[in-house]
């Protein structure tokens, strides 16, 4: 869909590892993804699939002890972010790449007013005076449609509802007009009506600011609403990559198919939802072959021998990590 556009962020062969009992285990393996300018890429997967770790790896926000980027590059504006010094990295964070988090209740500092928290990034990256930064913070609060923003600028986070706090988070992220916005389940903690409002607003702001968005979610309904392309992650790797239309019309990977079956749909009668049996293998005990094999209805004996590769499927830009499905479509 967006191939003709410039690439904003390019992740190549990323491997993020965690230290468990003195050994390093990969939580994200051999992950390659790119996001075009003004594109929304959704990363979908269940808990423990490595989607949040991917986003945190881009900004290098993982806990400094016990986590590391073992291999790969994150290319942004001609630089490899994994090679930058901590100081150079902090001038990227919140400036050209911003991030919003899942928990609006705990992700804001309880002892600073929302105005101060929004203005902070502007004073850090733009060298603006406190007064100018606060004026800009007020403009941003209005932009994310906080009612009576003038009086609320000096309120503390605990005086806001969950939905309002998430808007404050968005305003904070937008403060320096980032090129890329990483949104880590920004609507998961909100109820459905608020969720819809926040999603719509994110989409409008993306257009207004000309940002690229990496949207992390486990909710396929949200994906359908907001994404251009989708990467489905399982056990730390991308198992399917497709445009949003192709993914819903023609899901290739058995895991994607199963995920879609767990989702209630308005456009067809749903008798019952099917949970996926089993669970994601722990990072300390990744199987040799396909990580999904133990839960897969299409499993062949060969699946457990060799780790499958991500290969082109039928449509343009559609890739899947499943030799059985590839075999089926070819044959």
């Amino acid at each position: 869909m967006q191939q003709n556009q410039e690439t904003a962020l390019d992740i190549r062969g990323l491997r993020t590892e965690f230290k468990v009992g003195g050994r390093w285990y990969p939580a994200v393996r051999d992950l390659s993804l790119d996001v075009a300018e003004n594109e929304t890429l959704a990363i979908v997967g269940e808990s423990g699939s490595g989607k949040s770790v991917t986003a945190l790896s881009i900004l290098r926000l993982l806990p400094q002890a016990g986590a590391r980027i073992g291999a790969g590059e994150v290319l942004f504006e001609g630089r490899d972010l994994t090679k930058l010094s901590e100081r150079e990295m902090s001038s990227v964070r919140g400036n050209s790449i911003a991030m919003i988090f899942q928990e609006p209740m705990t992700s804001l500092n309880p002892t600073m007013t929302v105005g101060e928290q929004i203005a902070e990034a502007i004073t850090i990256h733009r060298g603006a005076s406190q007064a100018d930064a606060m004026a800009e913070a007020l403009r941003l609060l209005k932009e994310v449609k906080i009612p009576s923003a003038d009086s609320r600028l000096h309120d503390y986070p605990h005086q806001f509802s969950g939905g309002m706090r998430q808007r404050v988070m968005i305003a904070m992220a937008l403060a320096c007009r980032p090129k890329v916005l990483l949104a880590d389940e920004p609507t998961t903690a909100l109820d459905v009506t608020i969720q819809a409002q926040v999603l719509m607003q994110l989409d409008e702001l993306k257009e207004a600011y000309g940002m690229s968005v990496v949207f992390i979610t486990h909710n396929l309904g949200v994906v359908a609403q907001i994404a251009d392309r989708v990467a489905v992650m399982y056990a730390g790797e991308v198992v399917e990559l497709a445009t949003v239309d192709a993914l819903f019309a023609n899901p290739a990977h058995p895991y994607t198919v199963a995920l879609l079956r767990t989702m209630p749909r308005a456009d067809r009668a749903t008798e019952s939802l099917e949970p996926i049996p089993g669970s994601v293998p722990p990072v300390t005990a990744m199987p040799e072959g396909c990580a999904y094999a133990s839960r897969c209805p299409l499993k062949q004996p060969s699946c457990e021998d060799k780790r499958p590769e991500l290969l082109p499927f039928d449509g343009p830009g559609h890739q899947v990590r499943c030799p059985v499905r590839l075999e089926q479509t070819r044959g």
């Binding site: 900004l59 926000l61 100081r87 902090s90 001038s91 990227v92 964070r93 919140g94 400036n95 911003a98 991030m99 988090f101 928990e103 705990t106 992700s107 804001l108 500092n109 309880p110 902070e120 990034a121 850090i124 990256h125 988070m169 904070m172 403060a175």
Partner: peptide, 12 residues
């Protein structure tokens, strides 16, 4: 979480 948020803003 808010410490991570602050780091994500570029706070040194």
């Amino acid at each position: 979480d808010y410490i991570r948020t602050a780091r994500a803003k570029g706070v040194r």
